[in-house]
Nucleic acid binder design. Structure first.
Lengths: 345, 345
DNA sequence: GTGAAAGCGCTAACAG
DNA sequence: CTGTTAGCGCTTTCAC
């Protein structure tokens, strides 16, 4: 798969100049070069279809033009938006993107980070698997590595971070559900993992709910795994304990939303008449189920763009030294699933 | 982001041996090495936290350990499975994966392929954007590049291909719909693009339908873009022309499925009573809408694994010269949306 | 304006 | 069992 066997030596030979001159041409250092030489070199390069060997180039310059991305789960539909943003921005800036997926395992993450550092990526964008396992990242940073955390944060503000307003927006969503007229709102969450994001949504639920009900903890269902079973049992419990009231469920991840809807369907609950639903995130199908599910939409493509932008600035040292924190705003999209009166808001 | 400033030279110096010996150690060529030397080198490497410079390594060996993946659309939920399969297999084999997304543009694809070749990836897995634009790939292959096409094929059997049984399974699905008792089946397809996959499904529809109805072309709706509008109009047309009959719709992509369902909802059609539905692919939400949508499930994770496996075999020259064609079997999953009698099959 | 030569960090042929 | 030496393809002083 070597692109070509033409080297700078051959070009210089054919063009009748030195390697140095060709090199200068390649790097756009035309200042003191005669038009004639320039043209000759260009012609020869074209003729031989010469393409510089990027490895040799990197060896000298210590620049690989590679950016490493380690996400917690590539198949997550919102993560994919993130990756797309990163790839789009990076390729626009001439960087290529190496991707790996830790599948929520801190150990895998560690392994991938190391192999990327060995590969001499110029910077790293990480969706961390565990908010407490950042020793490696910390060490790397100490030795000059450029690192940006996307989406998820860690328990120490030492890295650049690009994320969304999880806490604030979840609070806002809960508040909105009560404002709309629901009597009780429950939380249905995928396992909290070692991610601050889900935790933030959980805390938002608890703190905001306290303004309306006595012990929100009783209605905060955190389900292990993604089996529908658990959701059915929890939802049944929730409905029973609040019989006669107008109830709504807040689902804190797409899978939780999906499973909650599945459980509601199995229990024969009508949405929104029997159960209001608001979830994360704005995936295509949410428009269609039950006449539209209300959701919080996070700007993940933009998070990708911003992470990449920040990282590249870091790489180019165009940014002040202390860690930057960027929080992009998400959007609450109200649809039929929270519409219990003719005019929801 | 240079991992370290420790080189093989320093290690050899500290260990009191030559660089060659250290190099041999690194490459596991212990055959003729004294236990003592070995241990000493190991100790020094550990102590200095030495990590070999992969760029320098690549320069000599012409091996980068990089595999390039160019997909037509990273955000496509099935493509993501593909990518995951590729990444999983590659990282198990010690390769890293560089990803790019052509967004269905042959020109972008071309650009990315070239930049990856320049980067000296050892092989390429491509989900082609256009079945007629493979001149570049052909040239590359002629000069020894290792290339595997995943999912989509081109109009010339010159590359290794890993795909699924689109034609056969679509035919089977159509046949099944008629067997189940529908009188007329219509096709709702996203634009055919320059992809053989959608074309195969289209042709399967036409050819299989002919056994049941006179002019299937009349009920093959190919919609440009992904606006629901077009689907609504087409579906209304389909329903009107087949008033009084038991009708079903076959949607040939996930987006077509989603839009079809949206249109059905807007037209107030009950599924499956007024309209049977069978679509592509088995995404999470299909379980939930209308009590379950029948779908064809493609083994995309496996397609990823197989593509990577084949490519790596090619790279290692462990495979005969003529192009391999692998077609993995998809699965028809029947759910409520095609259940018009108590026992669907 | 251009070139000669040294060297980036590593590997491999050839000696011994 | 180990070391010497010559590069891989490119960039970059320093000289002319």
């Amino acid at each position: 798969m070597k692109p070509n066997t033409v080297t700078i030596g051959k070009v210089s030979e054919v063009a009748g100049v030195s390697k140095t001159t060709v090199s200068r041409y390649l790097n756009g250092k035309y200042e003191h070069m005669s038009e004639e030489t320039k043209n000759r070199i260009r012609a020869v390069i074209e003729e031989l279809d010469y393409r510089p060997n990027s490895i040799a180039r990197s060896l000298k310059s210590q620049k690989t033009g590679l950016i490493g991305v380690i996400v917690s789960d590539v198949t997550n539909p919102v993560t994919v938006q993130l990756i797309k943003g990163i790839i789009d921005y990076c390729s626009r800036e001439g960087y290529q993107v190496v991707t790996a997926s830790s599948n929520e395992k801190a150990e895998k993450e560690r392994e991938y980070i190391l192999s990327m550092v060995d590969r001499q990526v110029e910077g790293l964008i990480v969706v961390v698997a565990d908010y407490n396992e950042f020793e490696l990242l910390e060490n790397l940073r100490a030795s000059g590595a450029k690192i940006v955390l996307a989406d998820r944060t860690i328990n120490k503000p030492i890295f650049d971070v690009v994320t969304t307003d999880n806490y604030a927006m979840s609070k806002h969503a809960i508040k909105t559900l009560y404002d709309v007229g629901f009597d009780v709102v429950g939380l249905f969450s995928s396992e909290l993992l070692k991610s601050n994001v889900r935790l933030a949504r959980y805390n938002a639920f608890i703190n905001q709910s306290r303004e309306y009900i006595a012990n929100p903890e009783a209605f905060a269902y955190v389900l292990q795994g993604d089996q529908e079973e658990g959701y059915r049992v929890s939802l049944a419990d929730f409905m029973k304990k609040n019989a006669g009231k107008k109830v709504a469920a807040f689902a804190s991840t797409p899978m939780a939303t999906l499973n909650l809807l599945g459980a509601a369907h199995e229990l024969g609950l009508k949405i929104p008449e029997d159960l209001g639903v608001c979830g994360y995130d704005n995936l295509h199908w949410t428009r269609l189920i039950s006449g539209g599910i209300s959701v919080i939409e996070q700007p993940f493509y933009e998070v990708g763009i911003e992470s990449a932008k920040m990282l590249i600035k870091r790489i180019r040292n165009e940014i002040e030294n202390n860690p930057q924190y960027v929080e992009l705003s998400s959007k609450l999209i109200l649809r039929n699933s929270t519409c219990i009166y003719s005019n929801p808001l």
